[in-house]
Write a protein that binds this DNA or RNA. Structure first.
Length: 901
RNA sequence: GGGCAAUUAGCUCAGCUGGUUAGAGCGCCACAUUGACAUUGUGGAGGUCACUGGUUCGAAUCCAGUAUUGCCCACCA
């Protein structure tokens, strides 16, 4: 016998273990079945899972379980990401804090620091494994991958070398986003802007006035730029030189005319600092101007600053302003200048643009093969979405995606950190010349030094969908090129392209776009793959989970954080999953709070108790539920049975259809409503007299099946008690096909009327205080006016095997009365004399007025030629029918009114 | 500056391509409840679908504009 309430803690771990040990999560590459593949976005191996992971795991698990039950060969690949910068800075901070190290990089050196990081990563990996299991994720642990696996490293090197040979990867001096705090480059996407109010200084610069918020960069400014059409400066010509007094004495300035100078801004004149500003850099490139470094990579001023050399920016700024002031060059200070300051996403340090030698991927060079065409990486990325090879849900993100690509610059892929895939390039200084080796494997011979930089973490995760499917045993066979590696891997052949990429919209650019870039590049030249494969067919983007009042949950504010593991502990994984899925639509943020989760815990418990009730009924009927294999013959089904079976068939249709379309929220709500309202509030109530256990068990089983993708634990647990003896575990149970012959809309409509009748009688009894045994007659209007119930025989017949009804004595439950109606017991009811005539009259008059108004609107509509001519005939028919029905209703009300008065 | 979206009940949100008199959960009010479910039931109140126009026989739904809010991208010396 089941316990009185569902206890997730006593169930979930046990059930998960059972699933895992059964091998049901393990995909078979040799299977004849159609495949369905999901690559799990690998969480960063830096510790705890948060709600973002929880929502992603819940969504993907629903996809996976649904498709598995539908009979597909499902592969869901789990894994973790090495998250280069995030992990390294996390571990460095940890070492500083826990081991009191000042500078762990310098103190430990490369090898030892990597060792520390590796240990940390291993620990968090096993933590994450446990947490992913807690969510109930049905992923294939035998295929777990990590973005730093040797196979992945091999793939990274292969792709790098190949792109290098194609001229897509190049090394160059470019202005990059330098993070002096973390001592590395960061990509454009890893920058955040913060609005700050700072002082804005205007200085005299020869005959001009120039303005800046950063005087400390101005030492090397020897170009003065103005718009070619600016009338104020027509007397100065491009290339004109002049001597101007500046911070550390006179310098030679050159006039540059360029449209980059906005005549509307300030004085319309500016000086430039090409080494430390993106725009200035481009301007300097255009005019082939000299570039000079002012600020060192440590964030301190270089010797060019003269007396300020070695000072940090913060210290130097006021002193420089002071000096310029004393020289009479300060024109003014604007105090409330608002502008955006670039900050590093990790560490929140100021970004100092610098010129550095870095590795880049060229996104504009048209050498990428795709479906026998030669395109640029940008063009391929656009092409696959335009041609619908990839669909993005919700589709508005396709616009965002295109917009991003339009503005995409070359991708800087090198990072000056130690944790990550090291760039597969080796150098050797040989009598003054420098040899370079770019290869998948290190060069032979001595004296070679590998490039110290590592690759952007997204470079390796961009290969995720297919690099995880390569047979690890083949990875060491360097004689095989990458294309052969893929074609010899059974998993790749069976499971790629993957079916759905489910992830947060916040990493559409970081990751999704880059997977498209890399996968199309790698497969585009392969005839075996029809000259190009996409990484996935569908991209499903979920939104962020926010707090109740719409704020972001952040680690710095622990009060706002909801820890998924706490919630699982408190309410169970099933309840948590429902609370994140139902009410969440793709691409939109949603809010989560404990009451919501508690609400779904109540639902899970309701289902549990409904099952308990069904089992109790089986016991009463001395029927072992496991022996129930079929439904009784149609003639032995009551009205309620037929109505419920009808509703179930409709539910199966809706759920199957909705899940295929990824309408998860809607489907969840649909099942929720069916279980609570139809199954529990209608059917179980009606079953309290005599129950048809076969129908009970049949419907309950179907509910468990349909709900399994959403609530895997509780459904599997209940399944054990109600399943047929020859059925296996629920997660492998076949998905039901809707059966049209079980549909019975007539019965469903009749039951609805009946429910209305019962409800009305209950109400009357409580409102009027009807004495037991007293005979009354009653007229009851159903909500939708489709049927009226009174003691007239024809209506009674409409309701099925109904004789008439009574309230015989006080102790008898109203629900029993309902059962009496259903089983056709011969009872008599007359509520005459107890009806509140005045109240009924009032109600009838109100209804009459409503209906008359409604009728008027329909009649008007039907007289309107433009309606009858233009509206589809079906609609006109419908309106006519509505008119007839309304007239009918009005007639009845009229009759009733007459009889009352 | 460029782009994307949102605005529906007290709160959180559905409402899929225009079609009966707009829905759910929570909350609120009243009543019931030894009952499968101290996690339940029944009923109720509560909405000019942000605003203004337009298209249409018909608009929460499509279009334009306005207001407010949020997000993304770029970034100005």
């Amino acid at each position: 016998m089941l316990s009185k309430a569902y206890d997730p803690k006593a169930t979930e771990d046990r059930i998960y273990k059972m699933w895992e040990e059964s091998g049901a999560f393990t995909a078979n590459a040799k299977s004849e079945k159609e495949s369905f593949t999901i690559s799990m976005p690998p969480p960063n191996a830096t510790g705890q899972l948060h709600l973002g992971h929880a929502v992603m795991l819940a969504l993907q698990d629903i996809f996976a379980r649904f498709q598995r039950m539908k009979g597909k060969e499902v592969l869901w690949v789990p894994g973790t990401d090495h998250a280069a910068i995030a992990t390294e800075s996390f571990v460095i901070k940890k070492l500083q804090k826990e081991k009191k190290m000042k500078d762990p990089r310098a103190q430990l050196g490369r090898e030892a620091l990597i060792g520390e990081i590796k240990d940390f990563v291993e620990a968090s990996k096993s933590m994450i494994r446990g947490q992913v299991r807690k969510m109930g994720s049905s992923c294939d642990w035998s295929r777990e991958r990590y973005t730093m696996d040797p196979t992945l490293n091999r793939c990274v090197n292969e792709v790098f070398v190949s792109m290098y040979r194609d001229g897509l990867i190049y090394r160059g001096h470019r202005i990059v986003n330098w993070d002096p705090k973390l001592q590395t480059t960061v990509s454009d996407d890893e920058i955040e802007y913060e609005e700050r109010t700072e002082q804005f200084y205007t200085f005299k610069y020869g005959p001009f006035e120039i303005s800046t918020s950063r005087p400390e960069t101005k030492f090397g400014d020897k170009y003065v730029v103005m718009h070619p059409d600016d009338k104020r400066y027509t007397k100065y010509v491009h290339g004109q030189k002049m001597i101007v007094e500046w911070i550390n004495g006179p310098i030679e300035a050159t006039v540059i005319k360029d449209k980059a100078a906005d005549p509307e801004f300030g004085t319309g004149v500016m000086t430039i600092t090409p080494w430390h500003d993106h725009v200035d850099f481009e301007l300097a490139e255009r005019h082939k101007l000299e570039k000079q470094q002012i600020i060192g990579f440590d964030g301190k001023l270089l010797p060019i600053a003269g007396e300020f050399s070695g000072m940090s920016i913060e210290d130097a700024r006021p002193k420089i302003v002071e000096k310029l002031k004393s020289k009479g060059l300060l024109v003014g200070i604007k105090e409330d200048y608002v502008h955006n300051v670039a900050l590093s996403q990790r560490g929140k340090g100021m970004i100092e643009p610098q010129i550095k030698e870095q590795w880049f991927i060229d996104v504009n060079k048209r050498v990428v093969k795709w479906k026998r065409k030669e395109l640029s990486l940008k063009e391929v990325m656009q092409e696959v979405v335009k041609s619908r090879l990839i669909t993005i849900i919700p589709d508005r993100f396709e616009k965002t995606y295109f917009h991003w690509i339009d503005n995409l610059r070359d991708w800087c892929i090198s990072r000056q950190i130690w944790w990550g895939h090291r760039i597969p390039v080796w150098y050797k200084d040989d009598r003054g010349t420098r040899d370079t080796h770019v290869g998948v494997q290190p060069p032979s011979g001595s004296g070679w030094e590998q490039d110290p930089d590592t690759l952007d973490t997204w470079f390796s995760s961009a290969l995720w969908t297919w690099s995880t499917l390569i047979d690890p045993d083949l990875a060491d066979e360097y004689a095989l090129p990458l294309s052969e590696l893929l074609l010899k891997s059974p998993d790749f052949l069976k499971f790629h392209p993957t079916d759905v990429m489910e992830t947060g919209y916040d990493i559409l650019f970081f990751w999704v776009a880059r997977m498209i870039l890399m996968t199309t590049y790698v497969t585009g030249s392969m005839p075996e793959l029809e000259y190009g494969q996409v990484p996935f067919d569908t991209v499903y983007l979920h939104g962020l989970i926010r707090t109740r009042d719409g704020r972001k949950m952040s680690k710095s504010d622990p009060d706002t954080m909801i820890d998924p593991l706490d919630m699982i502990q408190k309410y169970g994984a099933d309840a948590l999953r429902l609370s994140m899925i139902v009410g969440q639509s793709p691409g939109n943020d949603s809010r989560l709070y404990e009451e919501k989760i508690a609400g779904y815990r109540n639902f899970v418990n309701k289902l549990w108790n409904a099952s308990r009730f069904a089992l109790m009924k089986c016991e009463e009927a001395k029927t072992d539920p496991s022996t129930i294999t079929s439904l009784p013959h149609a003639k032995d089904l009551s009205l309620a049975d037929r109505a419920l079976l009808h509703a179930l068939e409709v539910l199966i249709e809706d759920v199957t259809d909705g899940l295929a379309k990824y309408h998860l929220s809607e489907v969840g709500e649909r099942i929720y409503a069916f279980v609570w309202e139809y199954f529990c509030d209608w059917y179980l109530e009606l079953s309290k007299g005599t129950a048809n256990v076969a129908v009970l068990v049949h419907v309950l089983r179907k509910i468990l099946v349909l709900l399994h993708p959403y609530c895997p634990f509780v459904t599997e647990e209940l399944w054990a008690s109600v399943k047929a003896s020859d059925a296996g575990m629920l997660l492998k149970n076949p998905w039901p096909n809707p059966k049209a012959e079980r549909k019975d809309p007539e019965a469903f409509a009749q039951l609805q009327v009946l429910i209305d009748v019962i409800t009305a009688i209950r109400r009357l009894r409580s409102e009027q205080g009807i004495e037991p045994g007293k005979e009354v007659s009653v007229t009851i209007f159903s909500k939708d006016h489709t049927a009226l119930f009174d003691s007239q025989p024809e209506h009674i017949r409409r309701l099925g095997k109904v004789g008439s009804l009574t309230l015989s004595n006080k102790s008898e439950k109203l629900t029993n009365t309902a059962v009496a109606i259903l089983s056709g017991a011969e009872v008599h009811l007359s509520l005459e004399g107890l009806i509140d005539v005045a109240a009924e009259l009032k109600k009838l008059h109100a209804e009459h007025a409503d209906l008359t108004r409604y009728l008027g609107s329909i009649e008007k509509k039907l007289q309107d030629k433009s309606f009858t001519d233009k509206a589809p005939p079906k609609v006109v028919e419908m309106e006519k029918k509505k008119m007839e029905e309304t007239k009918e209703k009005l007639k009845k009300i009229d009759e009733r009114l007459k009889s009352l008065s």
